[in-house]
């Protein structure tokens, strides 16, 4: 009897459809978001994340209607991210049926948004998404992270879908967003995203151990063992994956059965 580790399918949504690419490029159509979410619900997904990668202001209506349709049919927690820039955007997204919102670029450009959102809606529904990339040039004041091959790097926060390096130290940023009132961190490493080579364990562990709020590991899962590693080696509280579920490589239930057999507490 304990809080279980969560398995979270993520749906990247563009113009109301699920898409999937590698390194944020080369997008392929993978279906209707609500249909896919319903399938994951049946398979025992613990939550579902919708990331609106169109993220343009004029497209807010499309994603809000997707959220609404999902909320009408699904009775599991729904997190929505992408294009959320203001307290008003958050209010609209929650009203449409989301349980949590995920803020990414806007949190970096205007960190006070985290404080204002947490004060208004409670920390538990504010997820800060942090995209990172390893920077091999060590600098003073950056948190060193040791890679499996022994190299020491620091992880840099990147924004705008991974294209814009910010110079911000990822571990420190994670601690700052916690202090500002984030309830959870969704960590995506550009090093592993879309590769199917496994989560980026060194940065996942560094951040999970560096904060007191839950951390969702994201980017790179390709095998069942990768989920296990994310929890055990990466110390993640939840593991997020997209393409392995969309293309039916395995079901959420298969992942959970694999984990349960290895003594990871999951809800079956």
């Amino acid at each position: 009897m304990a809080l279980t580790r969560r398995i979270i399918p993520c749906l990247d949504i563009k113009d109301g459809r699920v898409v999937k690419g590698t390194h944020f490029e080369g997008l392929r159509d993978a279906g209707d978001p609500v249909e896919l979410a319903a399938r994951y619900n049946e398979q025992g997904a613990d939550e579902v994340v919708f990331l609106d990668i169109t993220a343009s202001k004029e497209n807010r209506g499309t994603i809000l209607s997707v959220i609404g349709r999902a909320a009408d049919q699904l009775f599991l927690p729904l997190t929505v991210g992408g294009g959320i820039r203001s307290v008003d955007d958050i209010q609209q997204t929650l009203r449409a049926g989301a349980d949590k919102v995920s803020i990414n670029t806007s949190a970096v450009t205007d960190p006070s948004l985290i404080d204002r959102a947490a004060a208004r809606f409670g920390t538990q529904c504010i997820v800060v998404a942090i995209d990172v990339r390893a920077n091999p040039v060590m600098q003073e004041g950056k948190t060193p992270v040791v890679l499996p091959d022994g190299r020491e790097v620091w992880y840099e926060v990147v924004t705008m879908g991974g294209s814009h390096p910010t110079g911000i130290d990822a571990v420190r940023w994670a601690q700052e967003v916690e202090a500002r009132g984030a309830g959870e961190i969704l960590l995506t490493s550009m090093e592993t995203d879309g590769t199917k080579e496994g989560f980026d364990i060194p940065i996942t562990r560094a951040i999970s151990e560096g904060v007191g709020i839950p951390v969702i590991a994201s980017g790179g899962v390709g095998t069942l063992e990768h989920f296990y590693d994310g929890f055990v080696l990466g110390k993640a509280d939840a593991c997020l994956a997209a393409s392995v579920f969309h293309y039916g490589e395995f079901t959420v239930r298969q992942v959970k059965e694999y984990l349960a057999a290895r003594d990871i507490p999951v809800r079956l």
Partner: peptide, 17 residues
């Protein structure tokens, strides 16, 4: 209460007695 290694918020699926 703050306990090392225990994340807050309590977030996810847990059991009822």
């Amino acid at each position: 209460p703050r306990v090392p290694g225990m994340k807050v918020p309590h977030m996810g699926w847990n059991t009822l007695e």
